[in-house]
Simulated scan of single mutants.
Amino acid sequence: MKVIPAIDLLDGKVVRLHKGDYDEATIYNDNPTEEARKFKEAEFNHIHIVDLNGAKEGTFVNLKQIKKIISELDLSVQTGGGIRSYGDAKMLLEQGISNIICSSMAVKSPDDWLNVLEDYGDSAILGMDLKEGKVAYGGWLETLDKSLEGFLAPMIERGLSTILCTDISKDGTLEGPNLELYQQLGKQFPQLHFIASGGVSNANDLNVLEKQDQYGVVVGRAYYEGKLSLEEMLKYHSG
């Protein structure tokens, strides 16, 4: 299982939101590169970065900070937030970002997203945020009235391989991930890799996810609040 440390950026600072609420942001570090260096020194080589300004405003407010992390630390970065078009995706990948995570574009500009999948393959990850069982987008402020099967079918046909799935009700809560959801999704779509996101609270959560044979998991608030050490995260990290 891939354990992926997370950095959420808002106005150039490392923060975490509570259930996606921008008014409930906890600041953990004013220096994103300094934060990312801790993961590098612990021998993580791939991290997850979200541009929260981008997710809400559609502009790459924190790209400068992300590029600095890549150039100074030689880390592989998957990033999302504000990717609205094929041109956005192409630009970010050309900036040295390893994987782009798209959610709103898959809903609002499906043709662009399908073209991204065709042209960039495994570099393109679908960010599927679920709110009460429905796909949420636009900074988690809107939901899509469509079944998961209907939503994912054309993407699978065009080569989708990986989904980063967040249960918004669990994100930033430290209440434990929605284990049943990830297990169900894995059975429903066995051809896809799922990266679990939201709610991880301790090493036991990682243990259970590993036993469920999950492809990957993103860890954020549990690390920042001392519930999980980097050593514990590495214990369950296999690549």
Rank of each mutant, 00 (worst) to 15 (best):
G82T: 14
G82D: 14
I83G: 06
I83Y: 03
I83S: 01
I83H: 02
I83P: 04
R84G: 03
R84T: 15
R84A: 04
R84E: 04
R84M: 15
S85N: 08
S85Y: 02
S85E: 07
Y86E: 00
G87E: 15
D88W: 01
D88G: 03
A89Y: 02
K90F: 00
K90Q: 13
M91Y: 13
M91R: 14
M91I: 07
M91H: 14
L93W: 05
L93S: 05
E94G: 13
E94W: 02
E94Y: 07
Q95A: 03
Q95F: 00
G96W: 06
G96R: 05
I97T: 07
I97W: 05
I97Q: 08
I97F: 08
N99C: 11
N99T: 09
N99Y: 07
N99A: 08
I101K: 12
C102L: 10
S103A: 15
S103D: 15
S104K: 10
S104V: 12
M105G: 11
A106V: 01
V107H: 04
K108I: 07
K108D: 04
S109H: 12
P110N: 14
D111V: 15
D111G: 10
D112L: 03
D112P: 00
W113E: 00
W113H: 10
W113V: 03
W113R: 00
W113G: 02
W113P: 03
L114Y: 11
L114I: 15
L114T: 12
N115T: 13
N115K: 11
N115P: 03
N115V: 04
V116R: 00
V116Y: 01
L117S: 02
L117F: 01
L117P: 00
Y120Q: 02
Y120F: 15
Y120L: 04
Y120A: 05
Y120K: 02
G121I: 08
G121C: 07
G121P: 06
G121K: 13
G121D: 09
D122I: 04
D122L: 00
D122P: 02
S123H: 10
S123Q: 10
A124C: 14
I125F: 14
L126H: 05
G127D: 14
G127P: 14
G127A: 15
M128C: 15
M128V: 14
M128N: 13
D129F: 10
D129A: 11
D129N: 11
D129T: 11
L130M: 09
K131Q: 10
K131V: 05
E132P: 00
E132Y: 11
E132T: 07
G133D: 10
K134N: 12
K134T: 09
K134M: 12
V135K: 04
V135C: 09
V135M: 07
V135R: 04
V135D: 06
A136K: 01
A136C: 06
A136D: 06
Y137C: 11
Y137G: 06
Y137T: 11
G138I: 04
G139D: 01
G139L: 02
G139R: 00
G139F: 01
G139M: 03
W140F: 09
W140S: 07
W140Y: 08
L141I: 13
E142M: 06
E142F: 11
E142C: 09
T143F: 00
T143N: 00
L144N: 09
